[in-house]
């Protein structure tokens, strides 16, 4: 009998089994969650992520079908394949959740984000910011003599890149919508 040798006074065994479960590679996944548009449904989804220790990198939500009371929640999360499978299953058992799609694995998806950037600058920096905005196809939606607000749409990476370039030119404020995504094709 391999009876355990537990030393008196040893505290190496805790009441909780702290196993190394998430050893595989973590990947970013975009999930589309179609929900009944009822009070508290977003709290249920967010509560699931915080309660079970999952990450949210980005989250957007809006009603997509007023008559049918449907909203679409787009969540960018990261985790191993096993964790993503768990997240999908856990989302699926929330009563007002109708559908869960993993846009990263199910189909190639189009992902877009919208951002607003306020840049305060004068002189050469101001001109440079306009030139870069042109390259990124960002448009000016507000202007004073010392500031611009640029509106830019694109992938999160493109918006990150634009932010990096704007920072030394006087970027003072950013608002991003988070990712909206749709599967390609039919």
């Amino acid at each position: 009998m391999a009876a355990l040798n537990i030393k008196k006074g040893s505290t190496s065994h805790s009441a909780y089994d702290l196993r190394d479960f998430h050893s595989d590679i973590e990947r970013s996944h975009t999930l589309a969650v179609i929900v009944e548009n009822e009070p508290g449904v977003l709290a249920r989804v967010i509560g699931l992520f915080s309660g079970r220790g999952y990450n949210i990198d980005s989250l957007t939500v809006a009603e997509i079908d007023h008559k049918g009371h449907r909203s679409r929640i787009t969540i960018v999360t990261r985790g191993t394949e096993a964790v993503i499978e768990q997240i999908r299953a856990q989302l699926g058992r929330i009563v007002p959740v109708h559908e869960v799609h993993d846009l990263t694995t199910e189909a190639k998806a189009v992902e877009r984000e919208l951002a607003l950037f306020k840049v305060t600058a004068t002189g050469e920096k101001r001109v440079e910011s306009l030139r870069l905005a042109d390259i990124f196809r960002a448009s000016v939606v507000d202007s004073t003599l010392e500031s611009f607000i640029f509106e830019i749409t694109g992938t999160s990476e493109k918006i990150d890149a634009f932010a990096e370039l704007m920072r030394p030119l006087g970027l003072v404020d950013v608002a991003r919508t988070g990712v909206a995504a749709l599967a390609r094709g039919v």
Partner: peptide, 12 residues
Amino acid sequence: IPSGKPHNEMLL
């Protein structure tokens, strides 16, 4: 079975 031990390391 102390927490975190496998089934075959049972204390009797």
